[in-house]
Design a protein around this nucleic acid. Structure first.
Length: 488
RNA sequence: GGCGCGUUCGUCUAGAGGCUUAGGACGCCGCCCUCUCAAGGCGGAGAUCACGGGUUCGAAUCCCGUACGCGCUACCA
């Protein structure tokens, strides 16, 4: 019954940015499509004129593309079912709404917002189990309807939900789900401004665009029976449904802006790699059944299946995202990191400092195991970009003794006669001085690190010396001796 | 309130009736490595599988009930 190659869609409403929950939904749709040689479609559900946000569509597409989720059909790229903006497809919805009216499955409703509100209040007062529209306009005569229409009375078109009907469907993730039609309201299909509601537009478009699998968030599960009813009334073949678990805040409420970042662009701005974000979000509600947690897009496509998607909501845990970011960082080639580092450098306080690619590559080589973010190639080791401005207080207390300046001076003298020293040359020279002074190497290395970098942590000592170069090292040692003595 | 969905270490999860003294990962703690910090290796703490009943020789796994959480209940999606 389902055509061989699946057609799936991500259908966001353009409210300003791509939510990470939306990213997860889009990703699962994408993975499912790619895995099965199917088509991934982007459709914009912009039927709520009150929530229109300027630039939201471009922003959404930018975020999607940044994550590597390229769509086969949609705005900008086109396709056989254009247009892909619902606001440009109004004629279609009207045509089908009218068809429903002709068949008695929908009806014009002229009730004012005022009456609807009073109705709701009354139902609440009586504590009725289910608050629904009372079908007041369903029984209007053809003549009355024609007259009202003629007089340009505002109207909506409502779905005529039959009573005492079991509506059920099989959800790929949740199994059999059944609803009683007595609990389903006569949903508005066409609003008084002429725009369709989600329910109508969604069903019409999914059918017209030949969507085979509807993969969407759990918040739609409760309205699926309305969609089922519509498919039945139109006598259309139904797609398969898969309702995804929600993404949650730490307190298990639905992931929200108040408790942290929810937009893909927020994470992008904070320096997370797209590979890490995608990997992380893929694992929120899905796993392959093995112990693998590190995934690139290709391996996700290979392993993904809807059958292995979980039913329960997942908390968005920044710690694990950070870990994955570090993992992906380490897997990147030096050249790739160089490109990213240069980009980051341009945005930093060192945008005027001119450093060779070789110098930056050296930093990458010695720091890549020590950073979680690209920007930490700068912030965790500023000493590679400038002479230290200040010296770590705790390290001074711990490693700077009255005899330190003399020892460093000796070290400086020995270093100064080295000719184009290698890492090993520095190490041998330092060992020699330590022996001469009859102290452990560590007794020299700690103050030396402090003098050269201002910190007590960082790259290996001899890597550090080698990368900085002899002249810079000598300069920094001398400078540190003067400055640290002043402060102590 | 009604309807629906869910509930395994703090978090993400494995688990499809006996393979489970419930496994892995992040985080946390310790040890090793070591010039520091990381990375890596090894180890540890951490889940009476929400609770209560069944079914069964045997249940985290099947059934029922309860509790709790979440979603929907709009002329929002």
């Amino acid at each position: 019954m389902i055509s061989e190659t699946p057609r799936v869609r991500f259908a966001p409403s353009p409210t300003g940015y791509l939510h990470v929950g939306g990213l997860r939904t889009a990703l699962y749709n994408y993975l499912f499509a790619k895995k099965n040689n199917g088509t991934f479609i982007l459709r914009i559900e912009d039927t709520d004129r009150n929530r229109f946000v300027e630039g939201a569509i471009d922003n959404l597409i930018d975020s999607l593309k940044w994550c590597g989720l390229n769509f086969d059909e949609g705005p900008q790229v086109g396709g056989d079912f254009e247009p892909y903006l619902q606001s440009e497809r109004l004629y279609l919805y009207h045509k089908h709404a009218l068809q429903l009216i002709d068949n008695g499955h929908a009806y014009y409703c002229f009730c004012t917002p005022d009456r609807l509100e009073k109705l709701r209040e009354e139902q609440q007062r009586l504590k009725l189990p289910q608050a629904k529209y009372d079908k007041h306009c369903c029984s209007l005569s053809k003549e009355t309807v024609a007259e009202n229409l003629n007089n340009n009375l505002p109207y909506v078109i409502r779905l005529n939900v039959p009573s005492n009907l079991k509506v059920n469907f099989n959800d790929i993730i949740r199994g059999d789900v059944e609803f009683d039609s007595n609990n389903i309201d006569d949903q508005v299909l066409i609003k008084s401004d002429g725009y369709p509601t989600y329910h109508l537009a969604n069903v019409v478009d999914d059918h017209q665009m030949k969507i085979t699998h509807v993969i969407r968030g759990e918040e739609w599960l409760s309205s699926t029976p309305k969609h089922i009813l519509l498919y039945n009334f139109f006598e259309w073949e139904k797609p398969l449904f898969a309702h995804l678990p929600l993404l949650l805040n730490a307190d298990r409420s639905k992931l929200s802006k108040r408790q942290g970042d929810v937009a893909v662009e927020d994470y992008r701005g904070k320096g997370y790699l797209k590979e890490a974000l995608v990997n992380f979000v893929a694992l929120l509600g899905w796993n392959a059944g093995d112990d693998v947690e590190f995934y690139q897009m290709e391996s996700l496509i290979e392993k993904f299946s809807l059958e292995r998607v979980n039913k329960s909501g997942a908390v968005f845990d920044l710690e694990k995202l950070k870990w994955l970011n570090a993992e992906h960082l380490r897997k990147k080639s030096a050249d790739e990191l160089l490109t990213l580092l240069k980009l980051e450098l341009n945005e930093s306080e060192y945008n005027n400092v001119n450093l060779s690619d070789d110098y930056l590559l050296s930093i990458i080589e010695v720091m890549r195991e020590r950073v979680s973010f690209v920007k930490e190639f700068i912030t965790n080791c500023k000493y590679f970009y400038e002479q230290p401005n200040e010296f770590d207080e705790a390290a001074i207390t711990k490693n700077w003794n009255p005899e330190t300046p003399g020892q460093l001076k000796l070290l400086n003298d020995v270093f100064s006669i080295l000719n184009l020293p290698t890492r090993e040359d520095y190490e041998i020279a330092l060992a020699k001085v330590a022996l001469e002074l009859n102290i452990g190497k560590g007794k020299l290395i700690h103050p030396l690190r402090l003098a050269v970098s201002g910190q007590s942590t960082g790259a290996g000592m001899f890597d550090l010396l080698y990368i900085l170069g002899k002249e810079e090292v000598l300069k920094r040692i001398n400078s540190a001796i003067l400055r640290i003595n002043q402060t102590t």
